[in-house]
Amino acid sequence: MDSFMPILHNYRTSGLQWKMLGVTREKVLSRNRRIENGSTILWSYIENLVNDAVEKGFLEP
């Protein structure tokens, strides 16, 4: 859950830190992929959140 919180925070702030740092979709997913080992349900939610962030322009593709 500790790794999930920054993702959720960035999503809820319209990608404020992601935009400032030029973070990409792939960077978020690759850095947090270990979450999938702990919970496939949470990982699926994260993937959907990240994809939605890209669609909304919060995160670079």
Results as ranks from 00 to 15, higher is better:
1 M>V: 07
1 M>G: 09
2 D>N: 09
3 S>W: 06
3 S>R: 15
4 F>W: 03
4 F>A: 11
4 F>M: 14
6 P>A: 07
7 I>P: 02
7 I>N: 01
7 I>W: 05
8 L>E: 12
11 Y>G: 02
11 Y>S: 07
11 Y>D: 02
11 Y>V: 01
12 R>D: 09
12 R>M: 14
12 R>E: 11
13 T>Q: 04
13 T>I: 05
14 S>A: 12
14 S>G: 03
15 G>S: 07
15 G>K: 02
15 G>V: 04
17 Q>W: 14
17 Q>H: 10
18 W>C: 06
18 W>D: 03
18 W>L: 03
19 K>T: 06
19 K>E: 06
19 K>H: 09
20 M>N: 10
20 M>L: 14
21 L>Q: 13
21 L>E: 14
22 G>N: 14
22 G>P: 11
22 G>C: 08
23 V>R: 05
24 T>F: 06
24 T>G: 07
25 R>E: 10
25 R>K: 15
26 E>S: 13
26 E>G: 12
27 K>T: 15
27 K>R: 11
28 V>Y: 09
29 L>E: 13
30 S>A: 08
30 S>C: 00
31 R>I: 03
32 N>W: 11
32 N>M: 05
32 N>D: 15
33 R>A: 12
33 R>T: 03
33 R>P: 01
33 R>G: 00
34 R>W: 11
34 R>E: 13
34 R>C: 06
35 I>V: 15
35 I>W: 07
36 E>V: 02
36 E>S: 08
39 S>A: 03
39 S>D: 11
39 S>H: 01
39 S>G: 00
40 T>G: 06
40 T>A: 08
40 T>R: 11
41 I>T: 12
41 I>N: 05
42 L>Q: 05
42 L>E: 13
43 W>T: 01
43 W>Y: 09
43 W>H: 03
44 S>D: 12
44 S>I: 01
45 Y>H: 07
45 Y>F: 13
46 I>H: 01
48 N>W: 09
49 L>F: 12
49 L>V: 13
50 V>D: 00
50 V>H: 07
51 N>M: 05
51 N>D: 15
51 N>Y: 06
51 N>C: 03
53 A>T: 02
53 A>C: 04
54 V>E: 11
54 V>A: 04
55 E>Y: 07
56 K>S: 10
56 K>Q: 15
56 K>V: 00
56 K>M: 15
57 G>C: 03
57 G>V: 03
57 G>D: 06
58 F>I: 02
58 F>L: 00
59 L>K: 00
60 E>N: 15
60 E>D: 08
61 P>Y: 02
61 P>Q: 13
61 P>T: 10
